[in-house]
Amino acid sequence: MKKLDKILLGHNPLFGVDHLSQAQGNAKDQKFENKNALTDILRYAHSKGVKAMMMSTHPRAQVILDIIEKDPVLKDDFTVYPLLPYVVKYVRASNEKGMFNVVKDLLGQAGTGGSLSMFMSGLSSLVGGNLYKTIKILIDIEMLPFKNHKLGAVFMHDGLVDLALGLGCDEAFDVFRDHIEKKYSVPGGLITKNVPMLVDTLDARGWEEYLIMAAFNKTGFYINPSLELTEKTLKKPGMNFIPMSTLAAGAIPPQEAFEYIGQFPEVKSVVVGMSKKSHIDQTVDLINQNIR
């Protein structure tokens, strides 16, 4: 697998999401409504060697993508790792108008952002029951905002990965990975809350190499079914693992957190949310000391 950036800036703080405290998330959300604050933090991160960011198609992603595209330094030297789809948006919409209409409306967006043929092809595959073709077109529609950007890898959101995993729809993982690799020439990765179960499923499908992103920290926070089993799974041959929630939502001091992560040579990249310059300074130093 191609080498990925060592440090990926996480999108949550910049999008106002804090899994431990909605109040803190809201404070960050208000701060980064200001485009200058976003530009400032992206440029600072870049100056410290953080030249990549993971992001979903949250409404604020477009603002960030515009900043990167127009910035004289960032535009040629910043890699984006899209995360598809932005599940919250679809959950809200499908509660209102049903899932079929959500997919139909989404295909309609291709008419404006993509091309008429994409829309027609998507609609005919949806109506005709060509499921995998529909999935590929939906991926392409979600990828439209990223078309002028340098890509590192593309990830499927855990909301969808874990649903497909539980429902036994695991062929969707092959379809996703193969389409991303073929069309976008980057690895297709999976985000999950259930690493051991996912890897067992991929093994049964004959996968020999995996790109997986998941919560990983020494306290076992957000890790299912157990830290012990997840550690064991990480050591499998062919594993490319990107940890997130490394600080366990602030419960582990950064030094301790990255020393722990550093014990796993399978970890070559890490995703970490950073919204303050002092935090960037400290985190970058610690990651460079502990992850080779």
């Binding site: 431990l20 874990d162 809350k193 259930n194 926070f221 157990s226």
Partner: peptide, 17 residues
């Protein structure tokens, strides 16, 4: 007791334990 101290892993997590 924070979320961290209260957390325990489950067989599969889909939208919350």
């Amino acid at each position: 007791l924070s979320a961290n101290e209260l957390f325990s892993g489950v067989h599969i997590d889909i939208s919350g334990a």
